[in-house]
Design a protein around this nucleic acid. Structure first.
Lengths: 365, 365
DNA sequence: AGATCGGATGTAAACGATTGCAGAAACATC
DNA sequence: GATGTTTCTGCAATCGTTTACATCCGATCT
């Protein structure tokens, strides 16, 4: 009688209970894993019925009762570059494997919007929030589960996960030193932001360790843009010949392409005329001709750790906040001459190419 | 008496009601916009109290009651390239502006995972789903609000939003023809997938319109990878000199870098020796030296339309499914010689560069 | 004046899942 | 056989909102 219409409403625990001839309590106990108090036979029967009916517990009801929905809010800046894409993927993967869902919001690099995103997450009752945009976070309840990625924050505001920029930069310089370079140009991001200074300090430490001084005229700061990189490179190229660097460490993805442009304009060939090391994990750097040696940030790993942290904190709000620093990695490719450029190995990937006639049918419209 | 502890639980509608001296029904009516039946004075008082207490309605309860949570699931393939990032941003923006939240899941290019993602969304009671990975969708309830982006599907399964690859490709060829090129190399994706054939058909149409035949030996299919592009370009470069193309249309981001590599290996200079047109909107193509002329897909727009569609469908499940095709756009840059390469304009961006002393303090540890 | 109407507010029943508590068997112990 | 113990299952309250329905009250109409 009740199915005079096609069942438009999802099936509930009550229907499973009725069908199996038990109470809803029993069904709940079986399906929620508290089945250790239910006799095995019954449990089996209930499971069978639930399965047959394709029963899916209603999340809203569950959240209401449990006073927590398994949602984790993630706030990212506007356009997702490869770094944030990696982070996002890492977060997603961990959350999916741990029965949580990822609610995404772009702050669009707008502090007001950023604020709104966070407030909305709190209002929606998100269990926790992961933020990857440095900004003020004053407006969330004290003790709210929070993790920040790669943005320096006062440690008392939740967990922080970051990249060890200092050691990463050291790696880059050390590599160049080992290849015999002594005049190394440094193209850094804008002074004053933590990432820039960490990386710079790493460079200095590596130089010092080798007993070399910093040549101040070989250090250039630039805003994080194509043009920034271009002009920084210009400065280096305009040094008197004897002072000109034999290698350059470009400490940000966004600066690299401008640098490359200048090198091309001046017919400076990599790695013949100049060794080059980048920082970041944009895929294009791996496929650029020549392929660029870089310090790669473990972006996926970063996301994974952030997700892990936030879940731990949700579980145990009182646990002391922890602060992770993941190591960056030196990926040696062709741009320092440390690896022969060589031709692409054909066997490195399955490929095919064929000529096809233009008669191929495709449904138009 | 009730606040012997710090208020750990969020405040509810009941507290607002008590504080304002009215019933919960009244509060609900005021706050949910059905305040036209409530006298203005009371409504004002209630609003004031709610505001003072920073009352935020509980989403879970609301969802449970309303039988719909305002969540839209989005399934994307594994690593987010710039296209999908744009799509995602477009979706997010629209949803944020329309009181819905974006729940993200990566399918990691894995059909099984893809299936799981969708099932999970359905189980979580998502109001609708947006999919951008072509795959089987058989396992979702008939009539479930669904929108697909840029993957050809049978039209009865929800709304579809796509790019007009046909016209886009025509645009690219037309541009090259206008510049006087007659031998145009075509580097296409793998045969058999809809995107490839649409673009190819567009090329043919443009050639036909100009009264030119397709030169079959100048058409090469390749798998979507660096190597694919490299080998395709190799084929073209190995044509007898008289047959060698004066321009090449590379119809996929992922093929472009391989092509560029070959050109560099053979010292073929762009645009002097060869004109080049790409397809896609990867930022690196805009900043590559030389900057590449491309057919750009309106990725953000695509996302926006998908979100808009899905909300309309959620609102009116019965409405006829619609199918959008957005136009791609020709972005003329330097790689065809149609625009003088010229130096970077300094005034095009605010920049600064400075030499700083290494003494800058940064907190270590 | 009494009946009627209509506007403003409150009452209480949903929504679906979980869980403390109580009750009912089944079994052991004295 | 009565009582205690254990094991299993059901009852019913609960989470916070929304909303159909009842109620109340003042105003209008006859």
């Amino acid at each position: 009688m009740s199915r005079k219409q096609v069942a438009r409403t999802a099936i509930t625990i009550r229907e499973v209970a009725r069908e199996a001839g038990v109470s809803t309590a029993t069904v709940s106990r079986v399906l929620s894993g508290h089945d250790d108090v239910v006799s095995e036979g019954l449990a089996e029967r209930v499971r069978a019925v639930a399965n047959r009916l394709r029963y899916q517990p209603n999340r809203a009801a569950r959240s209401l009762r449990a006073q927590k929905n398994n949602l984790v809010g993630v706030v990212l800046p506007g356009p997702l570059d490869s770094f944030f894409s990696g982070v996002l993927e890492g977060i997603d993967r961990w959350l999916q494997d741990h029965d949580h869902a990822l609610v995404l919001a772009h702050s669009q690099d707008n502090p007001a919007r950023h604020r709104i995103c966070i407030e909305r997450f709190v209002a929606q009752g998100a269990s926790g929030i992961i933020v990857a945009t440095p900004s003020t976070l004053s407006h969330l309840p004290a003790g709210f589960p929070l993790a920040t990625i790669d943005c320096e924050r006062s440690p008392e505001e939740g967990d922080t996960i970051g990249v060890n920029d200092f050691d990463g930069a050291q790696l880059g310089i050390a590599h160049l030193l080992k290849l015999g370079h002594r005049r190394i140009g440094l193209v850094a991001g804008p002074a004053g932001i933590p990432t820039t200074s960490q990386r710079l300090q790493g460079c200095l430490a590596a130089l010092k360790k080798a007993g070399l001084p910093l040549r101040e005229h070989l250090l250039v700061h630039a805003p994080l843009s194509h043009e920034g990189g271009f002009h920084a490179a210009t400065r280096l190229a305009e040094q008197p010949k004897a002072e000109r660097p034999t290698a350059v460490f470009v400490m940000h993805d966004k600066l690299m392409q401008g640098v490359l442009r200048l090198l091309r304009d001046r017919h400076i060939e990599i790695p013949r005329d100049l060794a080059l090391v980048g920082f970041g994990d944009s895929p294009w750097m791996a496929e650029h001709a020549p392929r660029l040696t870089v310090i790669a940030q473990p972006s996926r790993e970063l996301g994974r750790m952030a997700a892990q942290s936030i879940l731990l904190r949700i579980e145990t709000p009182s646990r002391p906040s922890n602060h992770l620093l993941l190591d960056a990695e030196l990926v040696i490719r062709e741009s320092c001459g440390a690896m022969a450029p060589g031709p692409l190995s054909i066997e490195s990937s399955i490929y095919h190419s064929a000529v096809v006639l233009p008669g191929t049918k495709t449904k138009s419209e």
